[in-house]
Design a protein around this nucleic acid. Structure first.
Length: 258
DNA sequence: ATGGCGACCGCAGGTCGA
């Protein structure tokens, strides 16, 4: 089972690229973030014509997440992260697929830090850690996929000294990610590529793509029973070089059949 | 250190992302 995650930065303006990527990369499951579209503007007909069933949680202007499944309809198990009934931002959706739980998440950016946006990021992170603990405790295969807005270590960014005060790299952010991992999750890309320079995001500015001035912020975290099935993982970097690209590239993993 | 680009809404330019 090939599972992908892709922050598309606007499904309306990215639809041609999304459809081309689905056709070329052919993931069985695709987690999308930053739809930037209200619920009723999701292009379901085009997604279905491409052979995918979908669930999604839209929001006007910002955020928005979706889970696509090739030749199947994802069974939605959640469309919000528990723990704050006042939180109306569409940043989480979860589905059951072929015996596994797939969570598609878009963790808040948190800049500028410190400030209320950074506080929201850390609070959201705590809710994720609490829910992830419950998911992991079930023992079933679980995949946490998405844009975590976390640079986990110094080798995950082109120039770490420039990012030390940024919400994606601050000590509090890295510590929260470490606490999440310490529940027993496996960082899939790092497990298979421990020493490689891997980036999933390149700024639109300053010729970041041409200079390979990127960062690794889109992640797959696997529960123990899912990690045991991990056979491949990579970044579809070629998508970042297309016309009208997202600033993120798709990331994917392959899990062996049970 | 700043501003750069791209997308949003909606019709100008403010806001957001990372």
């Amino acid at each position: 089972m090939k599972i992908a995650t892709f922050n598309i930065n606007g499904i309306a303006s990215r639809l041609p690229n999304l459809l081309r990527w689905l056709d070329e990369s052919r993931p069985d499951v695709a987690c999308l973030q930053e739809l930037k579209a209200p619920q009723e503007k999701f292009p379901l007909a085009a997604i279905e014509a491409a052979g995918y069933g979908a669930i999604w949680h839209g929001q006007k202007s910002w955020n928005g997440v979706a889970i696509l499944a090739r030749g199947a309809q994802p069974l939605e198990t959640r469309r919000d992260l528990p723990g704050d009934a006042q939180d109306i931002q569409s940043r989480y959706i979860e589905a059951a697929l072929e015996g596994a739980t797939v969570a598609c998440l878009y963790l808040p950016n948190g800049n500028p830090a410190p400030g209320p946006k950074f506080a929201y990021k850390l609070a959201w992170f705590e809710r994720l850690i609490a829910h992830a603990s419950a998911l992991h405790a079930s023992g079933a295969p679980v995949v946490l996929a998405g844009d975590f807005n976390v640079i986990p270590t110094e080798r995950d960014v082109y120039k770490p000294e420039r990012w030390v005060d940024d919400a994606l790299f601050r000590p509090e952010t890295r510590a929260a990610f470490r606490r999440l991992l310490d529940q027993g999750w496996t960082d899939a890309l790092r497990r298979l590529h421990p020493d490689e320079r891997i980036y999933t995001y390149w700024d639109y500015f300053r010729n970041a793509w041409q200079r390979n001035a990127g960062m690794r912020i889109d992640h797959f975290l696997l529960s123990a029973s899912a990690a045991g099935r991990l056979v491949a993982a990579d970044v579809d970097r070629y998508v970042r070089a297309w016309q009208k690209p997202s600033d993120h590239a798709p990331v994917w993993i392959e899990l062996s059949e049970r």
